[in-house]
Design a protein around this nucleic acid. Structure first.
Length: 197
DNA sequence: TAGGCCATCTGGTCCT
DNA sequence: AGGACCAGATGGCCTA
């Protein structure tokens, strides 16, 4: 959406230009002996020092902001790629971030479950790929999947009842509160023997 | 107008 | 030291 690219660049006015006149660097013992050497105005040099430090801090901050912005853009484009893979019927109905994640979560589970049922029906001729007995839910560590129901979390989008047939599954993973009826039908999942998609 | 969603900034923490 | 990651804060936009 146009807003992200525009980047109004407010560039914070709050702290960056407060310019506290450098509390006279206690560690700086430059002119103590004051016998030799130039006589360069001490205050002026420390102020200049403060300005430089401030400038460095400012540029660091700006660089960090840029990185953060890019990072979020990458995250968002990954999210967009995920949205494209998810079957939603109203083309213009863009899922929110949280909806996308939960939808994908349920979708993956539904696909796995469909595979499992198909295997049961056809006598295990499909490739055994990542089929779980229960819908995946990210473990707290985030590194692996635990085997708890998707509806175990209070924020789950789906009804609590486990699906027992393909149509049940299709009903199951559709996010509540949004209507994607027709977004996915049996053909979309089409798990026949070896094919899947 | 309130509430939801989002982008961005920011400071802190962890990692390399 | 610098970058990545994270969470809180803030302000803008949109919709019911």
């Amino acid at each position: 959406m146009s807003t992200s690219s525009l980047s109004p660049e407010p560039c914070t006015s709050d702290d960056e230009q407060q310019f506290t006149p450098s509390p006279q660097a206690e560690d700086e013992e430059v002119g103590t002996d004051a016998t030799k050497k130039p006589r360069r105005s001490r205050t002026r040099s420390t102020i200049k020092n403060g300005e430089v430090v401030l400038k460095i801090k400012k540029t660091r901050r700006l660089k960090a902001n840029n990185r953060e912005r890019n990072r979020m853009h990458h995250l968002n484009s990954a999210l967009d790629e995920l949205r494209e893979v998810l079957p939603t019927l109203p083309e213009d109905a863009k899922l929110t971030k949280i909806e996308t994640l939960r939808f994908a979560h349920n979708y993956i589970w539904a696909l796995s479950e469909t595979l499992r049922l198909a295997d049961q029906l056809h006598g295990c001729t499909t490739t055994p790929m990542l089929i779980q007995d229960s819908p995946p839910s990210p473990s707290p560590s985030g590194s692996s999947w635990s085997c708890t129901s998707p509806s175990s979390s209070s924020e789950s989008l789906s009804p609590a009842s486990p699906a027992s047939s393909t149509s049940d599954i299709l009903d199951y993973w559709q996010p509540a509160g949004r209507h994607f009826h027709g977004a996915l039908n049996q053909q979309n999942l089409c798990v026949t023997g070896t094919t899947f998609i």
